[in-house]
Design a protein around this nucleic acid. Structure first.
Length: 886
RNA sequence: GCCCGGAUGGUGGAAUGGUAGACACGCAGGACUUAAAAUCCUGUGGGCAGUAAUGCCUGUGCGGGUUCAAGUCCCGCUCCGGGUACCA
């Protein structure tokens, strides 16, 4: 029978839809649940990219496999649909973003359904749906009403926050301020990145290291605006330690650890000479205090003005002003020479009471540590560079652990910087009583911190790179904050029963010139009056796109629930997510933010697990072949001609190089999944994306590869649909063994997400079966079942053709039998000194001595022994024989 | 600079320290066809010898090492990809 994939795929997609084959029941009686989740897409206007089906097929294979293994499987899909493109389209055309969003979702849904993915469509969610964002707002209120109890290391309701007596005495206003200062969400002036082209505030994370906006590529500027911030650093330690027990790729775990950026050290206070002021610094090397020969404040440091002496004023002010105008790009460019100015003031080094100059320099960042440092040029590269440039003293305080006598000499003389370990020298002072001479780094740090703490001039401290999360955007198309700013300065959140706070309809979506959100134009919506006649104004900022995706996995558990975010019983059953697959671009931000929210919800008793995603896997990017000239100029794919495996420019005849690059419209090498489905079918697309290579590596799309798996599916279908090929009775031993090998390989490969080799195992079986010409019905049925997760339409059709009325989606997975897989004979490779020389077939039951004698008495051994006696013969049972002759 | 990955035929890629190149693409030859497409069969890392069967040499980015045995483990590099960056 011909492989009419178009008919078959349409037929089964209709069947699954009409029969709701994949509807998930909340069947708590089945203790084996499996929650397998995709990173839900942003439904862009350009439709599905071939990268989407890669992850979706992988999860679908696992979902289908687990169902056949008897698991109750939750496998949902939805849309992360708030976002900038729909809003920009609205600005240009006046079309409401909800209309564009709906159209895009419809396209995505159609395309995804045409791939035969086994989602439970009754659980579809959309972050822009008021019934969804109602609960996003609800979580924001929960976060707003939470403070972090450092003693217990967990978030608690602000109603349980103890207010110190002296603040209570100051009155209601002071108490309110105190509570507000402890909330996990707060409203404050923040210096933010502003993209003048998109007219949008960007989170730090959305600004690339070259100072450009991730979304549009234009250079961003700094701006001061009132913003909502979330105190994620309070959870830094929990977010960090929680990583250890997760089954995530090590690389991703490292990226999260680096992002959190924990470092241990100490705060140290430096007295200012002739002043009451103190400078507090954070250092990871308090042991090097004796080498601190100057100090540096960041240009934004609050003490800069106070510490600048009259004669230095104009120079310092000019420097600070220049620094504020610099983009981050200029400031972080390492190749750039260091700059700085002397304030005229001196600080007192607490270990030896020496006076050291205080400088201002932009290599010290305001946002990290305390925004001030003690500079130890002999043992810090940056300080060394700065000291050399400005002729500041360099005092070596460590005899370095180095075998190079020349280097040791240079370090001791302060001509080279040494940051590694060694023994302290010049590190004692009788007037202050500290002495760490002779100790190494580890012991020195410990002793110095102890000394500082006794003297109350310093304290051990852990510092994190992680900053407060800028959580508001000046956009229309996002979740409105359920917040009112009252005329008396009070900020309140809405009552939970008043949610959702819906987005008001607008005529104009253009943001204001000053950076104000378009919501400020919604006059009716904007102003409110409370029962006492007090006037208020709604928050006009909206939440960032992260908000909806921070918790969507929870809503899938109970998406239709009108009364609460979800039924706690269902949450207990389904959580955590057992397998989460998506692109590595979300390795840091989405996963960190999402874990943060989850931990807050956990502390409040709303969710039952401490971490949301047990196992994470990142699919690799799918790239495309592209072509460039010898000089490296890219050539559009429609101008490339192939001849004898070489590539030429079809117009100029220039020879071209084949390279691998991201798909791009300008290079005309974008693959549209719809085209592939039309030409080869969804099963071929699925199979090819899984067969290309390991799931986690980046790999180029190759049209020819699709033809390969298409051929395999065609051969499979034609062979198994031909009734003559299917027999009753005993199965041939070789076929039976081949089948059980295939079952075992496919099963273990699915468990390990190694789909490419699973597919090759099935190909090997079909090659064997077609060579043999006939297989039994039972063999055919088992094979159809293992094919089903990969090529479900083809498998369903074959299942029906072999005489079954129902879907095979819930048929039990076939069991393989180790007995059948056992071999009697083994063809031992025989090597001499590690070089393979010949093979010899021997029974597996044969013992070592017998094997050795059979190998050595073989006539082919004579040639390699050349009369000598072997020194040794290694026999690895069932693997190899190696004869050692010297 | 730092932290992670990676490098295997013409191509995508296989290979618990134990037969390198599974499976597939491509290519070559053949069958079917008036022809093409589709389909099927055979061969296919490189080199040397041989009409051939076959035999030998060589081969997993480079240089060392451990081992009876290294693509795999260790040390030192080169190149490529991702992340991150005056983070004190």
């Amino acid at each position: 029978m011909e492989y009419n994939f178009r008919e078959i795929e349409k037929k089964w997609q209709k069947y699954w839809e009409e029969n709701k084959t994949f509807r998930t029941k909340d069947d708590f009686s089945n203790p084996n649940k499996y929650y397998v989740l995709d990173m839900f897409p942003y439904p862009s206007g350009s439709g599905l990219h071939v990268g989407h089906p890669e992850g979706y097929t992988a999860t679908d294979i696992v979902a289908r496999y687990k169902r056949m293994k008897g698991f109750n499987v939750l496998h949902p899909m939805g849309w992360d649909a708030f976002g900038l493109p729909a809003e920009q389209y609205a600005i240009q055309t006046g079309t409401h973003p909800s209309k564009t969003t709906k159209e895009n979702c419809d396209t995505f849904r159609r395309q995804i359904k045409e791939l035969g993915l086994s989602y439970d469509w009754d659980r579809e969610i959309n972050t822009t749906d008021p019934d969804y964002y109602r609960w996003t707002q609800w979580i924001f209120i929960k976060i707003y009403n939470t403070w972090f109890d450092e003693k217990e290391g967990k978030g608690r309701p602000v109603s349980e926050l103890p207010v110190p007596e002296d603040i209570r005495k100051e009155g209601k206003e002071a108490v309110r301020k105190y509570i507000d200062s402890k909330r996990l969400a707060y409203y404050d002036n923040a210096q933010v990145w502003w993209c003048p082209v998109c007219r949008i505030v960007c989170a730090n994370e959305e600004v690339l290291t070259d100072g450009s906006h991730e979304k549009c590529g234009n250079t961003v500027e700094k701006k001061n605006l009132k913003q909502w911030m979330l105190r994620i650093p309070l959870y830094a330690e929990r977010l960090l330690t929680g990583i250890d027990k997760l089954d995530w790729p090590e690389g991703i775990k490292d990226m999260q650890r680096n992002w959190i950026g924990r470092s241990t050290g100490a705060d140290v206070d430096f007295r200012i000479d002739n002043s009451e002021e103190k400078i507090r610094v954070f250092t990871t090397r308090p042991d090097t205090l004796f080498g601190a020969t100057y100090m540096v404040l960041s240009p934004e440091h609050p003490l800069v003005e106070k510490l600048t002496t009259a004669d230095r004023k104009s120079e310092v002010l000019a420097y600070v002003k220049a620094a504020s105008l610099k983009s981050d790009l200029d400031r972080t460019d390492l190749s750039k020479e260091k700059t700085g100015v002397f304030t005229g003031s001196f600080a007192v080094n607490p270990v030896n009471l020496k006076k050291i100059p205080v400088w201002v320099a932009d290599y010290v960042l305001t946002g990290y540590g305390t925004g001030a440092i003690m500079a130890v040029p002999a043992h810090d590269e940056r300080d060394f560079e700065f000291a050399v440039k400005f002729g500041l003293p360099i005092t070596c305080i460590m005899d370095p652990d180095t075998d190079d006598p020349g280097q040791r000499q240079r370090v001791l003389e302060g001509r080279e910087c040494w940051t590694e370990d060694g023994r302290y020298i010049n590190s004692s002072d009788s007037s202050t009583g500290i002495d760490i001479n002779g100790l190494n780094k580890e012991a020195g740090i410990e002793k110095m911190i102890k000394w500082l703490e006794e003297r109350e001039t310093g304290k051990a401290r852990v510092n994190y790179k992680l900053r407060d999360w800028l959580f508001s955007r000046q956009r229309y198309w996002g979740e409105p904050f359920p917040v009112i700013h009252w005329e008396d300065g009070e900020i309140t959140v809405l009552d939970e029963n008043d949610l959702p706070l819906k987005l008001p309809p607008l005529e104009k979506y253009q943001p204001g010139e000053t950076g104000e959100s378009p919501l400020a134009n919604a006059t009716d919506w904007l102003t409110v009056t409370d029962k006492n006649g007090r006037k208020g104004r709604r928050e006009t900022n909206t939440m960032p796109q992260w908000a909806g995706s921070c918790w969507y996995y929870l809503r899938f558990i109970d998406p239709q629930n009108k009364k609460s975010i979800f039924d706690p019983e269902k949450e207990k059953y389904w959580m955590p997510v057992d397998l989460y697959i998506g692109g590595a671009e979300h390795a840091v931000l989405h996963l960190l933010y999402s874990r943060f929210w989850h931990k807050v919800l956990y502390d409040l008793g709303i969710v039952s697990t401490d971490e949301p995603y047990t196992k994470l896997f990142n699919q690799g990017m799918i790239l495309a072949f592209a072509y460039e000239t010898e000089k490296g100029a890219k050539v559009s794919s429609d101008l490339v001609a192939e001849k004898d495996g070489k590539y030429f420019h079809s117009e100029t005849g220039e020879p071209l190089r084949q390279i691998v690059a991201k798909m791009s419209k300008t290079l005309k090498n974008v693959i549209n999944p719809d085209d592939v489905v039309n030409r080869y079918g969804a099963d071929s697309l699925r199979l090819y994306e899984m067969f290309m290579g390991p799931l986690d590596v980046t790999k180029p799309w190759d049209e020819k590869g699709v033809k390969g798996v298409f051929g395999f599916l065609g051969r499979t279908f034609r062979f198994l649909s031909e009734t003559e090929n299917i027999t009753d009775g005993e199965e041939d031993q070789e076929v039976l063994k081949g089948l059980h090998q295939a079952i075992k390989k496919v099963e273990t490969d699915i468990e390990n997400l190694r789909f490419n080799t699973a597919i090759s195992a099935m190909m090997i079986f079909i090659n064997l079966a077609t060579r043999k010409g006939k297989i039994t019905r039972s063999t055919a049925e088992s094979f159809i079942k293992i094919l089903a997760p990969f090529a479900p339409h083809t498998a369903e059709e074959l299942w029906q053709l072999t005489g079954h009325g129902n879907t095979l989606a819930y048929e039990p997975w076939p069991l393989y039998n180790e007995e059948i897989l056992k071999e009697d004979m083994f063809e031992y490779p025989v090597s001499f000194n590690g070089k393979l020389r010949f093979r010899i077939e021997l029974p597996l039951s044969m013992q070592k001595e017998e094997i050795i004698s059979r190998v050595l008495s073989d006539e082919r051994s004579g040639k390699w022994l050349s009369g000598k006696k072997p020194d040794n013969v290694i026999v690895v049972h069932g693997k190899i024989v190696n004869v050692v002759v010297r």
